[in-house]
Amino acid sequence: MLKDKAHSISLLVANRPGVLVRIALVFSRRGYNIDSLVVSPTLDPNFSRMNIIAHGNPEILMQIIKQLEKLVDVVQAKDHTDTDAVEKELALIKVRCTPDQRTEILQLCDHFHANTVDMTATSMIIQITGNSQKVDTLKSLLQKFEIVEYIRTGKVIMLRGEEQT
């Protein structure tokens, strides 16, 4: 048995009602959870691209990918876990802060190329994009202040070079 780790699964699917349920069922019938999910139409509006992150036994996830590929509405299912792909996430982090804490927060943001997208007398919303690790690091550094709310998009993945994801 190999050790559990997060897997990035990319799917090309028919853009039809019910597709998401069929895909979710392949995970849920084994009691597997989907950690994050991104869905968007492709250049051809008849198809959607999905990126799923899921934890679990790698052998079982391989089986899950085969069963996803078998679904009539799934054109392609690929595991991009160890491939050379651009992986990005976007997160919004709302921090409660006093005016004299702002400078330190802004310095952190600057270091991480994060932006301030909202600011009030008592709070700030910071927007960060990047790989998961970068988002995690900024979040943990901001925990020194009070994080009021936090949301992230889930990973979008694209293969480098001309090859299609």
Partner: peptide, 14 residues
């Protein structure tokens, strides 16, 4: 019906 049978069909249509 289609929702309840997703897990038991090869494919389905509404």
């Amino acid at each position: 019906t289609s929702g309840m049978t997703f897990a038991a069909v090869k494919h389905s249509y509404l």
